[in-house]
Simulated assay, not measured.
Amino acid sequence: MLFPRTALALALALAAVPAAGQSQPKAAGEPRTVVELFTSQGCASCPPADALLGELAKEPQVLALTLAVDYWDYVGWKDTLALHGHSLRQKAYADQRPDRKVFTPQMVVDGTLVAKGSDRAAVQRALLAARSSGGLAVPLDVKRDGDTLEVALPETDLPGASSGHAGAELWACPIARSQTVAIGRGENGGRNVTYSNVVRGWVRVAPWQGRAAHFRVALKDLHRDGADSVALLLQEGTPTAPGRILGAAVLSLD
């Protein structure tokens, strides 16, 4: 039985409350949870998950991202938003887990917790578990300076030091806040599906080892494929061995 929307809203509210001993992030609207949905226009069971991610995307404490994969393209419709790198990222996540399962729709919360993307109850449990584990530990101070994006990170003991990750990496992801696609063929042929916070690329900003640091990114590198915002992700590990997401922020490019 799926939990009603009010239960999911309650889970989001609880996830926004800092765990004992956890400091408040600097900005009230700074995301405290990151949800990645691996989805495909060719997957018949994905539209309910796409709609659920749309609900999550409206919550200021949640950075909800759509990562369209390309391994469903063989069914007769090439996903117009897919990036092959998303398929590789999903597999890299799976390689870090004992189950090694790759499927759509699949949500990954804070880089470590997995849920079936259309299962509200499972998503709720993952959000609550993320909160109980401390949530995002590193605040990102992000601002625009003319044609440049500036990101400041504080000095922090890397939480991943005990989990085998030698450090973390800061990524800037151009995103399109809303894109509606008329799907012409395949399992969803004839449907119009709206996707929220669609990731249109990945820009590696810099590695990070826990020391106070300041980084700059040229905005011209982030304007691509209809992107109107940018998501910043600070994540343990590497693209081939991703770990826990330590911090996140989102900024409009308008």
Rank of each mutant, 00 (worst) to 15 (best):
residue 1 M to S: 15
residue 1 M to I: 13
residue 4 P to W: 00
residue 6 T to W: 11
residue 6 T to D: 15
residue 11 A to N: 07
residue 14 L to W: 11
residue 17 V to F: 03
residue 29 G to V: 05
residue 29 G to P: 03
residue 33 T to V: 14
residue 33 T to E: 06
residue 34 V to R: 01
residue 35 V to I: 02
residue 37 L to D: 13
residue 39 T to P: 14
residue 41 Q to K: 03
residue 41 Q to H: 02
residue 47 P to W: 00
residue 51 A to L: 09
residue 51 A to K: 15
residue 55 E to V: 10
residue 57 A to E: 09
residue 63 L to K: 01
residue 71 Y to C: 04
residue 80 T to Q: 15
residue 83 L to T: 04
residue 85 G to F: 01
residue 86 H to S: 10
residue 88 L to P: 10
residue 90 Q to E: 11
residue 94 A to P: 11
residue 96 Q to D: 10
residue 97 R to W: 07
residue 97 R to S: 12
residue 100 R to Y: 10
residue 102 V to Y: 06
residue 102 V to G: 06
residue 102 V to N: 09
residue 103 F to M: 07
residue 104 T to R: 02
residue 105 P to I: 00
residue 107 M to K: 01
residue 108 V to G: 10
residue 109 V to C: 08
residue 109 V to Q: 05
residue 112 T to I: 01
residue 120 R to V: 06
residue 121 A to S: 14
residue 125 R to K: 13
residue 125 R to F: 02
residue 126 A to D: 05
residue 129 A to S: 11
residue 129 A to H: 01
residue 130 A to S: 06
residue 132 S to G: 10
residue 133 S to M: 13
residue 142 V to K: 05
residue 143 K to S: 15
residue 144 R to H: 12
residue 147 D to L: 15
residue 149 L to Q: 11
residue 151 V to G: 03
residue 153 L to W: 07
residue 157 D to T: 11
residue 157 D to V: 04
residue 162 S to T: 12
residue 163 S to H: 13
residue 169 E to V: 10
residue 172 A to S: 05
residue 177 R to P: 05
residue 179 Q to E: 15
residue 180 T to H: 13
residue 181 V to Y: 08
residue 181 V to P: 06
residue 184 G to L: 07
residue 190 G to M: 02
residue 191 R to V: 03
residue 197 N to T: 08
residue 198 V to P: 03
residue 201 G to I: 01
residue 203 V to N: 14
residue 204 R to N: 06
residue 204 R to E: 14
residue 206 A to Y: 09
residue 206 A to G: 03
residue 207 P to Q: 13
residue 208 W to T: 03
residue 209 Q to L: 09
residue 212 A to W: 01
residue 213 A to M: 14
residue 216 R to Y: 14
residue 220 K to Y: 08
residue 220 K to Q: 12
residue 221 D to V: 11
residue 227 A to R: 10
residue 229 S to E: 08
residue 229 S to G: 04
residue 230 V to G: 04
residue 231 A to G: 08
residue 232 L to D: 03
residue 232 L to I: 02
residue 233 L to I: 06
residue 237 G to K: 06
residue 237 G to I: 04
residue 237 G to A: 12
residue 238 T to E: 12
residue 238 T to F: 13
residue 242 P to T: 00
residue 246 L to G: 12
residue 250 V to L: 14
residue 254 D to L: 07
